[in-house]
Amino acid sequence: MTNAHPSLSPEDIERLKAPARRASIYRIFSYFSPLLLLLLWELSAQAALIDRRFFPPPSAIAGTAWDMIVSLELFDHIGATLRRVGVGYAMGAIPGVLLGLLLGLSAPLRRVLGPIFAALYPVPKIAILPLILLIFGVGDASKFVVIAIGVFFLMFYNTLGGVMQIPQIYLDVARNAGATRFQTFRRIALPSALPSIFTGLKLAAGSSFIIIAAAEFLGARSGVGFFIWASWQTFAVSRMFVGIVVISAMGYLTILAIEALERRFVPWSKH
């Protein structure tokens, strides 16, 4: 349909398309805007506004990073962290979404089980890490579990909130169209809650990287968190910063990836 508009002049079409084009340019820039922070840091360090012993300039960190990339030292750590986050995230997100949908649609279940989740939610995930290490050992399993717990609650509450906000009319439409309970779940509740689910996925991705860093400090022999901790112990500040930047970038890129999925799977909502 788009290209057949004989009644519009080329200038009109230009004007019509301009906002969308501007938006996509902004989006490209927005991917790189965190780099501005690095630039500011570099300049402050060069101008000796901040203590170089604690905040080596990004250029120095980049040098260290380059050495580590060449020696492939970092990649094992990145791989270990990604594996733990990936598995733990899925272990938490899938039950979180399903239970959120279930409790959102069923008032009796919500009344009975809701308070249990509400009571468990405020328990600090890091505080129970020693317990989890005790139960699941210092291997990957304990990391999966601690991330899964953190992700679960974010997904559960965001999904529940999304389902609770479904306009009654959509449920009426489903009922009148003859939807079974499962179809209402799958065809109405899930898509209505999808925007909230994506908000949850982004929040959960951010906290997964926060949790994994802490978990790897305490009980791991690999991973970016372990790498940061080990660098700190030998007072290798540049290496430590490489670790910090790497884990931040991993979180950031994950969120960007989820946003791309959101644009693909929630095409009806405005971004």
Partner: peptide, 24 residues
């Protein structure tokens, strides 16, 4: 039923909305 208020499902296209009862 045709409802008084807006009742099209925002996550479905026009064709999918119309097909909804059949697809169920």
């Amino acid at each position: 039923m045709v409802f008084q208020e807006a009742s099209v499902l925002p996550w479905l296209t026009v064709a999918q909305n119309v097909a909804f009862p059949l697809s169920l």
